[in-house]
Design a protein around this nucleic acid. Structure first.
Length: 560
RNA sequence: UGGGAUAUGGUGCAACGGCAGCACACCAGACUUUGAAUCUGUGGAUCUUGGUUCGAAUCCAGGUAUCCCAGCCA
């Protein structure tokens, strides 16, 4: 067990501590139970980190169990992607990979047991009638006319349902509880429904009946000896049913504890909405770097460490909450700042000619790979007469407090020399296309001999050695802080500029960077190499920009 | 009077009858060969009304707001 550095622990760990102390349970065994009907996203990362993390902390175990009780929605590809994503985050279930479908036989025998106890019955009502007779939130329901069939008839009917004698929707098995219960989940909930097609991805056509969530989840938890079944607040209303089944069966009963799911500002997390983003082409796929899916975040350049750190910062509670995406960005910046190598890249090139620098000369200058980490070493970067700088680092007429290059001003080229702007060349449209400078030979390496200071240091690339590269700059997908509001609202607040593609240059060494490698482009942001990269054209995804104080200052100036 | 849950700075999370604290965000400054990072500092919160108590974010009662529940989805 971890003795938390900070003594405060969340309510789940508190409950587990109580259970261990009281002897209600003698170990901790959790489970992560995804339905294989979609990709894992950042919200799942929270659930997963809680269940796997708590098991780890208490020296217990966490099972991976696929909740595959509905063949209409599930398939093996999702099973595989889910496993990949969990492993990527750094969690492992060892040999405890389970499927709800593996328990179908045993579950069936438990259903028979309930029927024999008179606690379950086959209902022949149509779907409409079942709905009609369930009542409303304020009115109690009506009992089914089939509610009091004999045990023998119920068993016979269920058996024939299982054998495929009846069409989809014609009958269901229901628990006999209380049609007047104020908790809708207790108004004779459906246990089995008939589904002939499609075949189940694991059991094929063996089964024609499939258990509902409520008639599978708790039972599977029990069968696996789970002690703490941690889930979403949405299942709070299901807990009485979870316990009713196990009590009636007389089986071992885990404790279900619910916590608030993760919501993120400027993000949608509901499966339906994510699906529409993909299907309707607002993004390029489930792993589009703008998606909150784990595969999307991975491609964007997020690290497992940052995601886990983020989840830790979010905390665990029962309040409905919406986390500021800035917290996620802060977590990835912290991680990448510590670990990523620095490189120079020019996203929007502007040509600078250093008139007093010898025409054919090329110098190899030393540059640190990570100023914060001397162990990261240094590299050589070529310098010559013609270089590229970023357009944002030059202004013909500088606004107040602009320290970068402008006519008459001197700046430092990172790791190289001081240069002073002497002249500019414009094209027919009046756009500056060339900047002329002189350099101070006594400022080699960026240190002036006379000790004079310059306010700005800018990044650059030597024209001849620079390699072309594509930069994909991602911004938030939605303009509204809470795009989940409303059904279609999220589509109307899509950010038209969520992706900007720029063609610029990078240091020569980066042309061989491998997909997934991460760098900080100095003064620009953190980038990760995209799998779309080719030998001719490396592609860099911007994971997150650096904090940009200047743009804030400039914005303030414009607002005045 | 359907049932269940939750209310603490802008956003989250703590404080478990005894000085309301932490992170992110915001703001100011120091430092800086990244206007980054780092460091220092400022401001700002207990849903509401009553009650219990020497003392209430915490306990009690009422009110209000928000979330979940009427799938043969999970």
């Amino acid at each position: 067990m971890s003795q938390d550095e900070d003594k405060s622990i969340d309510f789940i760990r508190e409950a587990i501590n109580d259970d261990l102390k009281s002897g209600r349970y003698t170990k901790v065994h959790t489970r992560f139970p995804p339905e294989p009907n979609g990709y894992l996203h950042i919200g799942h990362a929270k659930a997963l980190t809680i269940s796997f993390g708590i098991a780890e902390e208490y020296g217990g175990q966490c099972n991976l169990r696929f909740d595959d009780t509905n063949p209409a929605k599930e398939n093996i590809e999702f099973v595989n992607s889910i496993k990949e994503d969990i492993h990527w985050l750094g969690f492992d279930w060892e040999d405890r990979e389970f499927f709800a479908s593996s328990y179908f036989d045993k579950l069936y025998s438990w259903a028979i047991r309930l029927i024999e106890k008179g606690k379950a019955y086959v209902d022949d009502q149509s779907q409409e009638d079942v709905k009609e007779n369930r009542g409303t939130l304020t009115e109690s329901g009506k009992e089914s006319p089939y509610r009091n069939r004999s045990v023998e008839e119920n068993i016979d009917l269920l058996n024939r349902m299982k054998n495929g004698e009846f069409p989809d929707g014609s009958r269901v098995l229901r628990a006999k509880i209380d049609m007047a219960s104020p908790n809708m989940n207790l108004r004779d909930p459906v246990m089995y429904r008939i589904i002939h097609e499609p075949p189940h991805h694991r059991t094929g056509n063996k089964w024609c009946i499939y258990p509902m969530y409520d008639w599978a989840h708790g039972q599977n938890d029990s069968m696996e000896g789970i002690t703490h079944s941690l889930c979403d607040l949405a299942y709070e209303n299901h807990r009485p049913l979870y316990e009713w089944f196990l009590d009636e069966l007389g089986e071992y009963k885990p404790r279900q504890i619910e916590f608030a799911r993760l919501n993120l500002s400027f993000t949608v997390l509901s499966k339906r909405k994510l699906l529409r983003l993909v299907k309707e082409g607002f993004v390029k796929g489930w792993d589009d770097p703008r998606m909150p899916t784990l595969c999307g975040l991975r491609r964007r350049g997020y690290t497992p460490e940052a995601i886990k750190d983020f989840i830790k910062r979010v905390g665990v509670a029962k309040n409905f909450s919406i986390i500021d995406v800035a917290l996620l960005e802060s977590a990835i910046r912290d991680d990448l700042n510590l670990h990523s190598l620095r490189r120079m890249a020019v996203l929007k090139p502007l040509k600078v000619i250093i008139d007093n620098y010898p025409e054919q000369q090329v110098e190899e200058l030393d540059a640190e790979n990570n100023p914060g980490d001397p162990e990261a070493g240094t590299r050589k970067i070529p310098f010559s007469r013609v270089i590229y700088i970023d357009q944002e680092d030059f202004r013909e007429t500088p606004p107040p407090k602009y320290y970068r290059l402008f006519p008459g001003n001197e700046v430092r080229l990172r790791y190289a020399y001081y240069i002073k702007c002497t002249d500019i060349v414009k094209d027919n449209n009046g756009e500056v296309i060339e900047v002329h400078c002189t350099y101070d030979p006594d400022s080699y390496g960026g240190k002036s001999k006379d000790g004079r200071k310059v306010k700005a240091t800018i990044h650059w690339l030597s024209e001849t050695q620079a390699r072309s590269a594509e930069f994909r700059l991602y911004d938030r997908l939605f303009l509204e802080e809470n795009p989940e509001d409303g059904e279609d609202g999220f589509l109307s607040c899509i950010n038209p500029d969520s992706l900007t593609i720029l063609n610029g240059y990078v240091e020569p060494s980066l042309s061989v960077a491998k997909a997934g490698e991460k760098f900080q482009f100095e003064r620009v942001g953190f980038f990760s190499v995209d799998p779309d990269s080719t030998a001719e054209l490396p592609v860099f995804n911007r994971t997150v920009s650096l904090r940009d104080t200047w743009s804030k200052i400039e914005k303030q100036q414009q607002n005045q």
